[in-house]
Design a protein around this nucleic acid. Structure first.
Lengths: 120, 120
DNA sequence: TCATATGGGGATAAATTTTTCCTCTATTGT
DNA sequence: ACAATAGAGGAAAAATTTATCCCCATATGA
């Protein structure tokens, strides 16, 4: 695995939540799992922009942070299901607030984001 | 400047908010500005782990995304003050929710984060 | 014997973000 | 003449995160 060289800063609540939520696909993974898409294949279909590999990696991190659990069924072909832990469930309302703000300000956001990225 | 090679995905509200909030120090910058620490020097003292350079860069991005404004006073030595735009202010409650969740779950978070990072 | 279905993961490359280092501005006070 | 002040930003290096490639496993059904 990779060994961090710059120490984490874990001062306030913002640092802490950042540590578990930060990651390109993590929030969406949590969201979709909450919506009932619990199998790796499904999740990947929901997030086609991400490679399967990264999804696995981020899922593993979410698991290590105890936000989700992984259940492996001993069948062939393999079947796996993720679900939110109780802890993970408490994060859903938070994610929901994020999503809402984004939705409510969709137009403006799209506009400022695009404007900025056009300036190379 | 840097030219993106992987296209942005701006599908849902979560993508959009991510685009403006994602950045190691951005949320804290918004928070401290909201608390009244509006000058670059102050902000840096509040966030000593970040280099001045990055703070400037991230402040500029926040400005381009219209979340803050920069006021330059024509004096010497220079004086600069940032403040939240109306738009930026609407983000404060959202950040507050993030921070609260982090604070409420401090212990557990610290524990899982450290456990994970000790495994190299 | 082979393709199919589903999930895993190593190694390496590429992309992106953050840090470090150094220089520059212009006025005031010593 | 020179330090101090407060802020800006280029260039290159380092750190970190994501992506790409490719191969593995195993029972079932054609």
């Amino acid at each position: 695995m990779y060994k961090r060289k710059i120490p984490l800063s874990l001062n306030c609540g913002l640092d802490l939540i950042g540590e578990v939520i930060y990651g390109k696909w993590k929030i969406r993974l949590l969201w979709f799992i909450n919506e009932g898409h619990r199998r790796p294949g499904e999740l990947q279909r929901k997030i086609p922009d991400a490679s399967r590999r990264v999804l696995n990696i981020q899922l593993t991190e979410l698991e290590e942070h105890e936000l989700i659990t992984k259940k492996i069924y001993p069948v062939v072909p393999p079947k796996v299901e993720y679900s939110l832990t109780e802890f993970g469930k408490t994060l859903i309302p938070v994610i929901s607030v994020l999503g809402q703000w984004g939705d409510e300000n969709q137009e403006r956001l799209r506009s400022v984001i695009l404007k900025r990225s056009e300036d190379l």
